[in-house]
Design a protein around this nucleic acid. Structure first.
Lengths: 300, 300
DNA sequence: CTCGTGTTTCTTATGTACAAAAAACTTCTA
DNA sequence: TAGAAGTTTTTTGTACATAAGAAACACGAG
């Protein structure tokens, strides 16, 4: 049976919306709600029905209104609002990075399915779409081999990353002055400065900023293959940030300063300055990543 | 139910093997056969059993021997020996390139399943693994959008291809003189010359040679992401060669000459010469490909 | 006529079943 | 006792069923 994580997430979102209404306020139309919650009307109607059963919403058809008098309505637990695909990915990355599996090991679908408490179909679909990240490989005879988050994986990743990023940075610095991306860049620069000034407390916000910055650089002249590769970078860094907490504040502070130098180089539109700043930043990012790989596939 | 295309292909291969034996010759051991046919012993036993039923093989257990006296045994039809995944890929590429579907169109799994005469599971699995080629894209809400073999697809493809190939060519020309790859390269050079001399009749053999040559260049310093990208190139060219027969002989002749110049540049180990020859070849390959794209997704 | 809800139809996601093929284990024989 | 065949156990590929969610259609009120 298809999971209803979508409904549950949307329901929780809807609860937040209604909590802002006062008693007797009219409920927006189904179409409006659908747009606001980012789901279809079918799901909205299910939410409305549930909300009515719980007494948060009264009325029917075209005349529905909020009922603030109703007691506390429990939202669905956070865990039940996460799409299966995301849960599986998370569990898989954890399984791999925690060192439960060594590079070269065979992946057993049924095993994983049991371990992750999902049907084999889900694992199979996951492995298929996860293949593109280069961490696993299909065997000709069927089945999968774990490649793992190894030293060579990180090296190969960064070789491509440098190629792509240098290309995009070059394109970016050649953008006409009228391009709206310059404004975006200045705004990001400002965000970097702000983050730097509050680095002691907000250093964990860097992960997101990092991703947005590099994504912006790649927007100059889009290329679907570069975009696709970027997804790999994003995935790796996402989990890397979660698991490697060592010297996190220091690392992020260094990276922010490198970003600023890189941004200034872009703004100066000097090709050589851009290349230098870009290379410097990537070299240090690579160092960081490589330190947390190992050839047994586990986080050192 | 799982298909038995593997069995059928192996059975046909086994028929060929036994046809070379004379009456009364002993049949190799199951393990040997398994290795020769590239399948498991389980499949070999099934083949042996069938072969015995048909009278081509007599005896049992450790004493089996060929029976040339048996009448003609019909091999399974070619079509039944092709793995489902390959069939689906072929049909899908045809569907897309023939222009049955326009770029931006939604892909309907059930529809395709009916059209290709397979279960929806197969289509779903195919789409999932096919995503990496960049010709289709998953919608956030589920379902797939056809991106199609468009002009911009070809341009983006070649932008990356040039980056990768230049990088690999550079690495190749820096290989130590002792590397066995130089010998491989010289052998390929010879093959090119031979093909050129018989171009009138053998021009269709170029497709394979092309792929082998570029793959060799990329072998210098392997990178899994470049290898993965190469699969895309291979897929595109495979189908391109099949469908675009216009000026095929001329195009291939030009390409062979370009390859030879490129190979000679590599052998000369001059960086600038390599870059020039490589760029020239890629530029003409791009031209060829772009001419057969169109923004409606069909072959012009 | 337009926007909104009620209703129906289509499509996709996920669980389950079962045969093909691989792999592991056991037994036999030269 | 090593290698070969026999047997059993695992694992994967494919089909099919069903519920969630999206989309299309229908109808009514203002």
């Amino acid at each position: 049976m298809k999971t209803d994580t979508l409904f549950k997430r949307a329901f929780n979102d809807a609860l937040l919306l209604t909590s802002r209404l006062r008693d007797g306020d009219p409920i927006p139309s189904e179409t409006t709600l659908a747009a606001e919650l980012g789901v279809s009307r079918t799901t909205v109607r299910k939410i409305l029905q549930t909300l009515t059963e719980q007494g948060v919403v009264a009325g029917a058809g075209r005349s529905r209104f909020a009922r603030a008098s109703a007691g506390e309505v429990q939202p669905f637990p956070e865990a039940e609002t996460v799409p299966t695909s995301v849960q599986v990915e998370k569990q898989f990355m954890e399984w791999m990075l925690r060192g439960d599996a060594k590079a070269g090991a065979l992946i057993n679908e049924l095993d994983l399915a049991r371990q992750f408490k999902v049907a084999t179909t889900v694992i199979r679909e996951f492995l298929n779409s996860f293949q593109r990240f280069g961490l696993i490989e299909r065997r000709p005879s069927g089945g999968w081999v774990l490649q793992g988050f190894t030293h060579s994986f990180a090296l190969e990743l960064f070789e491509i990353r440098e190629m792509f990023e240098l290309r995009s940075a070059r394109e970016f610095s050649s953008l006409p002055g009228t391009s709206p991306l310059w404004h975006e860049l200045r705004r990001l620069r400002q965000e970097h400065i702000e983050l730097l000034s509050e680095i002691e407390t907000r250093f964990q916000d860097f992960s997101d900023l990092d991703s947005r910055f590099h994504r912006l650089v790649n927007t100059a002249v889009p290329n679907r293959f570069i975009d696709g590769f970027f997804d790999i970078i994003t995935l790796i860094f996402h989990y890397h940030y979660q698991w490697n907490k060592k010297d996190e504040r220091e690392r992020n502070e260094v990276a922010i300063r490198e970003h600023l130098a890189y941004i200034d180089a872009l703004l100066s539109r000097s090709r050589s300055a851009v290349a230098t700043a870009c290379r410097r930043h990537l070299a240090s990012a690579r160092q960081t990543l490589i330190r947390s790989t190992s050839d047994t596939g586990s986080v050192a």
